[in-house]
Design a protein around this nucleic acid. Sequence first.
DNA 1: TTGTAAGCGTTATCAC
DNA 2: GTGATAACGCTTACAA
Lengths: 336, 336
Amino acid sequence: MNKVTIDDIAKVAGVSKSTVSRVLQGRVAVHPDKKNAVLTATRRLGFKPNIVAQSLASGRSMTIGVLTQNMGSPFYDAIAQGVIAGLSPSSYSPIFADGRWQIPMELSALQSLVGRRVDGLVLIGGSISSQQIQECCNELPIVIVARRFSDSNYRCISMDNVHGGYEATRHLLDCGHRKIAIIRGLSHHADAIERHQGYTRALEEFGIVPDPRLMVESDFSPDSGLSAVRELIKRGEPFTAIFAANDLTAFGARLALDQHGLRVPDDVSIIGFDDQLESAYMTPPLTTYHQPAREMGHHAAKAILKLLQGDEFLSLQVPGHLVVRRSVRDLTTIVH
Amino acid sequence: MNKVTIDDIAKVAGVSKSTVSRVLQGRVAVHPDKKNAVLTATRRLGFKPNIVAQSLASGRSMTIGVLTQNMGSPFYDAIAQGVIAGLSPSSYSPIFADGRWQIPMELSALQSLVGRRVDGLVLIGGSISSQQIQECCNELPIVIVARRFSDSNYRCISMDNVHGGYEATRHLLDCGHRKIAIIRGLSHHADAIERHQGYTRALEEFGIVPDPRLMVESDFSPDSGLSAVRELIKRGEPFTAIFAANDLTAFGARLALDQHGLRVPDDVSIIGFDDQLESAYMTPPLTTYHQPAREMGHHAAKAILKLLQGDEFLSLQVPGHLVVRRSVRDLTTIVH
DNA sequence: TTGTAAGCGTTATCAC
DNA sequence: GTGATAACGCTTACAA
């Protein structure tokens, strides 16, 4: 381990340890000669500052707590990557804790981060209430990603899922589809609810009454997408297109269709949500609604950094957009 | 913030702060009455220990540094998730730094972790030498994942890539393929090199001389898989199967074949490497060689925990296995 | 500009 | 068992 302390270099450089500290921090002027002496000694002894001691003394840990949920979801993972990348040029390091979408775990994960005296917090998704957050971490700069609180003044980086759901469904409608099934995500999940609202709104604009027989739930996993399509087919209500909760669900749905001898997009069209990396390489490439996950994480990191240096930062809605590939058939240009 | 310190509860409980510390640590016996008084005061004042101060005083930060490379690769991400999961039941928290596969960045990321006085280190992939590691972190418990050092005594969690490459190629061979193209990964990447060796060995067992016209490089991305297949087709040397560097590359390759009107597996078979989540949902589902990425991360976490409590732990090779799905055609059962 | 000295909140080492 | 008291390595008034 590195046992060299500022006392050592103070001795070697022939100055006091406060001067060493000053040189290292570089915030106040120090006589060039002493400065050089310190720098030389630092290099010679291979001094590495003890960040823990710095933290205790200064009250800042130079650490940003990141609360994730069930890492393993491409969308949330991408956000986390964005946070890491956004923090990377700063001298703050991200420290992670995982809440697994379970309130008790989220709470304890949050407390562990706060106990580590993080200087700021990035919460990715999650289900704890804004009150619970407040109780844990008074005063701490916090940025929430991929979630929105209407009842609080937390800064949130989010995307308009209602609009996304609307756009996706609208695309299907514009392509002439009228019997549009929806595989929506978990019933209590805000994203799923909002996208579903968008779906409903788009249908209604076209004077279509949403058919409950064309609605089935999923848990955002490929496997649930597969089961969902089987369920849909079993119900017997015909449909020409599917709006999937996310791309992963769309993957599963696509496989199920294949297994039932249904071609995409010839027999059934599919549209996903997220636009994850692999989606462009499905056969056919998946039409989907792009969520800028990585950018959202990046924004969050920059936001925290801003708050930390005293600047203000307001909630931000990042725009998503439709990515048209080849999994949706345009029925309006049929050649008879 | 939480301004309650052990001094406060010492006062309230009517004991010395050493006693408070003892109760909180629970390692030595304390009189039940005082213990209760302390516990009560702790709850009443809402005391949360300052982990930073604990770290400085005890010399242990209860933190494990995790050095990742280019987060965003499904394989490496899965490892990181495994580490988080494996650490989660312990009281150690993972702190991340990203090396981006660039030696200078790796080095500085590593130093930042060491400066934070992490108690242990998990290095995922990376290209710095074992010497450079040693210089940074004498004595620190270290576990390396998805990489192997022959020249050092670091503990490594790895998979036998030569064997994996052999098995994958062997499967193609067993299915009657003889003209087997390989899209190998980055030329200097150990995994790519080893899998390539396995490929070569399998071919030679069948008396086949590897044809350089059937070998093309990639960078493990879908896009490079796509270009690789175009290149292969342009060269004009016929092939009936492709061994892709990893699943992502296989995705790109599969799309390129599709664009050229080549069917999988009817015209060309594909085998990937990794077995990432999405692979089971390709059309056709991708035959691939499974790497237990998440488990490897999990093992690494457990290994560090073991080393930390003084137990020994030796390098570990985890087994992979072939996952046969539908992207490889069996030429030996052709019906004429 | 520079040095002295008092913290920062715990843990650890002693005597008692 | 328990309580002083000295670390832990650094920052930061406060003087000089």
